[in-house]
Each structure stands twice: as C-alpha cells, then as structure tokens.
C-alpha cells in the first residue's frame, strides 16, 4: 500500500518528483515549490490516492545548508480516510520566497499555514488571511528560525520597576547543562565549530567537525567562547 502512493506520484509527475524516501515506513516525496500546489491537488483529486484528510503543514529551518539548498523545508502531511494511507510531501523554499497556498485544496490548511508564516516567516501566495496567529502583531522576527534567540522577549507592556523583582532565570540558555548544547547564535556567526551531522551529510562532508578535532586545531570550543552566557 505504502509504496503505491510514491509509485503513483512518480508515474504521474515523473521527474517533477525530485526525491522519494520511505524512512521507518513514512513515505516522503520532495517537489519543487512551483509544483507544490499541483501535486497537492493531485493527491486530493486522484481516485487511487484520495488524500482527503488533512493532517498538518509545518516547516523546518536549515540555515546552514544555504546556499547549496534553499533554507526552509515546508512539509505537508495528509492521509486518506477511505484508503487509510498517508504521505508526506515536502518542498524547499528560500527565505522570502512565496509558496502557493493549499487552502483551495484543503480548507484545513488555513490556520496551519498562518502558523508557518507566524513562526518561520514563509508567506503563502493566495492565502485568504495571512496574519500572525499565535503571536501578536507587534512581534518582530520569526521565533522558530534558528537565528532567533530563544530568550529574546518583546514585551507588549512595560515591566514593573520595583525592588526585589530581579529574579534569576531558573535555567538560562544552556538549561543547566553546558555540555553538548547547540548555541545557534555562535554557530551561525561562525564562532562555533560544531556542525550537526545531518547538515554535514547534506553539504557532502564526510564527518562533522568533532570537538576533539576542533581542539587539535586550536579552535575555541563552544564552552570556551567568551561572551556566551
């Protein structure tokens, strides 16, 4: 059953399906952003696939794989109510690039696309109501991007200025465990030598630069970088 979905997509679209995979039983097909809406509409309309049950749209940020590959993965998850199979459709978009909306195909895409815009800043062309949904209009930036610092707050109203309010944060950026935590700010500014293994694979490197080799080359380790909290 599961292979049939990918085979059907490949038979219909041929080379437009850039990659397929079935990791742990999850079928995945990657298409170009220009084919995104067409493939989605086919998934819904085809009599063999009938992906009528909308599940989710989300995105993943890979700032380090640019410029070889576009920065964001946008992921669509759908399933078929009658056939009981699922598929994951993926596309890769640049920062600032607009993607066709899927609201005409599944109306359920409305809020999830708004959330992707809210969290990642990916706009959807033709969306009926492209507003922030979880955060407030005054918020600047997109928090789920890797380069947004997790503890950068943007208060809507001023905090009180009283004595005894200077509490220490309970955890801090390293959550009490400075070991092996990824500091994205340091990493994206090139101060951190750690590159995650998945990125290394995507960039064609054989191995990620390990901490021991960084030490051998005399480069600073993440823990030793001055100015890091």
């Amino acid at each position: 059953m599961s292979v049939a979905v990918l085979a059907r997509l490949q038979a219909e679209f041929g080379a437009k399906i850039l990659e397929t995979s079935s990791f742990r039983g999850d079928d995945e097909a990657i298409v170009a952003p220009s084919d995104w809406a067409a493939v989605a509409a086919f998934l819904r309309a085809d009599s063999e696939l009938v992906m009528d049950h909308f599940i989710d749209i989300t995105a993943i940020d890979y700032p380090e794989r640019t410029p070889q590959l576009p920065r964001f993965d946008v992921v669509l998850l759908v399933r078929s109510m009658s056939k009981n199979h699922r598929v994951r459709l993926k596309t890769r978009v640049q920062d600032g690039e607009e993607l066709d909306t899927l609201v005409p195909v599944w109306r359920g895409a409305n809020w999830t696309e708004r959330e992707v815009f809210d969290m990642f800043g990916i706009r959807f062309r033709g969306h009926p109501d492209m507003r922030r949904i979880l955060l407030y209009e005054e918020f600047v930036g997109y928090p789920l991007r890797k380069d947004y610092p997790i503890d950068k707050t943007q208060p809507l109203i001023e905090y009180r200025k009283e004595d005894n309010l200077e509490k220490l944060p309970p955890f801090g950026p390293t959550e009490g465990q400075p070991w092996n935590r990824i500091d994205w700010q340091a990493r994206l500014e090139g101060r951190d030598m750690q590159v995650s293994p998945a990125i290394a694979v995507q960039q064609g490197q054989k191995h990620a630069l390990s901490e021991s080799s960084a030490r051998a080359e005399g480069k600073p380790l993440p823990d030793e970088i001055p100015g890091k909290n």
Partner: peptide
C-alpha cells in the same frame, strides 16, 4: 513530527 540531526538535541 520529529527531526533528528544525529546529535543529542532534537533538531525540530
């Protein structure tokens, strides 16, 4: 929906 980059920290 979880994405792992092989490290001890979830990528997403």
């Amino acid at each position: 929906y979880i994405v792992s980059d092989g490290s001890g920290t979830p990528y997403r």
